[in-house]
Design a protein around this nucleic acid. Sequence first.
RNA 1: GUCCCUAUCGUCUAGCCCGGUCUAGGACACCGCCCUUUCACGGCGGCAGCACGGGUUCGAAUCCCGUUGGGGACGCCA
Length: 486
Amino acid sequence: MSSSGAVRVRIAPSPTGYFHVGTARMAIHNFLFARATGGTFGLRIEDTDVDRSRQEFVDVILEGLTWLGIRWDEGPVYQSERQGLYAPYVEQLLNNGRAYRCVCTPEDLAREREEARARKQDWKYSGRCRGLSDDEIRRLGAEGRPAAVRLAVTNEGETAFDDLIGGTFRRRNEDIGDFVIARSDGRALYNFAVVVDDHLMEISHVIRGNDHINNTYKQVLLYQALEWDIPQFAHAPLILRPDKSKVSKRKGDPSVIDYRDQGYLSDALLNFLCLLGWSPGDNREIFSLEELIAIFQLERVSQSNPILDPIKLEWMNGEYIRQIPVPDLAGQVRPFVVQAGLAAESEMVSRAAWFERVVAQLQERCKTLVEFSAAGAFFFRAPSEYDVKGVEKHFSKPGVSDRLRRLAEAWNKTVDFESETIGATMRALAEKDGTKLAVYIHPARLALTGATAGPGLFELAALLGREECLARLQHAASAIDSGLGT
RNA sequence: GUCCCUAUCGUCUAGCCCGGUCUAGGACACCGCCCUUUCACGGCGGCAGCACGGGUUCGAAUCCCGUUGGGGACGCCA
């Protein structure tokens, strides 16, 4: 813990060009923890691997966090800009004998690794260079053999740490081995940079993925060698795909940005990711950000790997879609409708009130924002074809085209064209015919929307407007007379 | 392979620390019924699980050991 006792956490993603849902989940955990404790949440970009890091990849992460509503209080701090900070501490360790220079070549190490594999053992460095004197190092350096720096790890005892999520973790030191903390070109390596940065940033709690546990032992060793306070750790299990393997870009798993583009609401995704592998203990599942801040507890994060179930995410997104006020929802759906080519942005602006009514009709029928375009396309353009099963069922009965024409005639004569009058007209027609209302409704729906399912007929007809409805009714009647449905 | 972690319905989980209240609760999905102009929403009901084997105990989902399964880490990557 930092000397002040204040909670300071951070998320430290490496910019790989993909905003992993696991990264998002850890960001959420850190963020909630900071908010709940009045602490500080920082963002640090782990880009010491200059070959793989690019600004545009960083931008993806910032964009994703911002979209999710996760605000960071400090940073982004770029590790690549902090190289100068690490060198003195490497030097310190070298001087007090806790670290040593290693002149093994990549080939030497590859050979060691192969031998270990042949013996079916975990590879760890032999410690061959540990006894080399400064003179020898200098001589080998003159021969063109640059030296990396390794931490000297004792073979005695074990390294252990208490984890807020996983309890006590321990590992024998002899299984860890002397690991590299600085490359032969002088640049610090991940494990070293993390420890120095976390110390300098006074990080009190390191909340990260399970995949770092074996790094944590090394980092604890480093804290001890540097004689620094060790932060509190919390390692959350990794999110798995339905096939139980790691979520990955290569396998085509959606990134946070992908979920956004597929029409998921940021609040829903945040809620879902937070609930994945965590439960408040009661049976609630839907939480606002404020509620999450109040009730989220790291200690209650489960210790086994959760599988991301896209179906449940979809359900939760539907819950959010149904929950939010129509004007908000309409605003979120709008870009998707424009994207789908149903209407121009300018048209959406001029018909904003009408569009809100459309969205209200679709609200409880869509689970993602993209679905609105498919489910509501008929609001923007006449159906180009009629559902085949629907045609068989509703357009093939004798007298259908006649009924559609009589409906058009009746609709043409009403004083206004609102859902009440539309419905009343149809009921009157059905009554006069001595038939059920359904006899009019189903063919009319098919004629107006091209589909057999959708919003209430009276409501959608009103939104379509009298003129458009009459045209679609006539068109369907003609199509039926021309042989459609027979 | 070695090391580390882990194990409740198909999936997410509650319960486990402090054994009896668990004929194991909730959610998603699925099935049925109701509501209903269709679909959806909503309501009601159903299906389905303590991985296995040993202990400990009057009693174990809960404690201990082992087996098996799953995941992660084994880089001069992060």
